[in-house]
Amino acid sequence: MINLLIVIFGISMLYMATSSRIAAQTNMLRLQGIILCFITIISHIHELDTSSIWAAITSLFTHIDTLVGAAFLIVETFVVKALIIPNVLDRVAEKSNIKRDNNPQFPNFYTLVISTIILFAGFMIASSQADILQNISSLYFGVSVSTIITAFVFIAIKKKLLTHVIGFAMLENGIFLLSLSIAKEMPLIVNLGVLLDVFIAVFILGLLIGEIGNIYGNPDVSQLCNLKDSEMAKDE
């Protein structure tokens, strides 16, 4: 079940990399948020003793402290990743009237090819090096690492500030998936990952895009190039 969800996550990442519509990208972020939420739920259900209903209920009480943490984590994942971030991005897009990120640095088709190669390489490396991965599923590792790398490609080729933030959110999702793979040993680390999300949700999205939007209108990275090292570059 988890493996299926991770594969869907990988496909959503490919779709995000190729699409140029903002709405499609935020929808994919929403989907990824929901998938991550489900993975969290399922991995916590595995911890419970599900041989009988009674055993499940008693194990609920014996694990109460971890369950409170898990419940917090699940709610947080859903609220921040599936609701707040995509909705705020949608609202920013609507407010500044951006529908698409036209003219990326190179055509979307090539992006599809590149991200597919990255995903494939991620799978291959992770499954061929399974002995180094020790206790981590190679699927987790392959998909999350290739998502992180694709997010960098995504940020590099897109031109709007908004799409840069979408790429960053994608990067966060990849990191969150990676941190879920070691959640059993170190639950603290997942909570730290959550903190990182709150950081972008509150800060980059709310504050900065708002401020920049007020002054520049429609934010586009090519407009943010006043600060340079020499006068010569400005004169050209």
């Binding site: 900065l208 401020e211 920049i212 002054i215 520049y216 943010l224 006043n226 600060l227």
Partner: peptide
């Protein structure tokens, strides 16, 4: 304008 640009790059 400049300080916003710098902040954006920084953040």
């Amino acid at each position: 304008k400049n300080s916003l640009e710098a902040t954006w790059k920084y953040v």
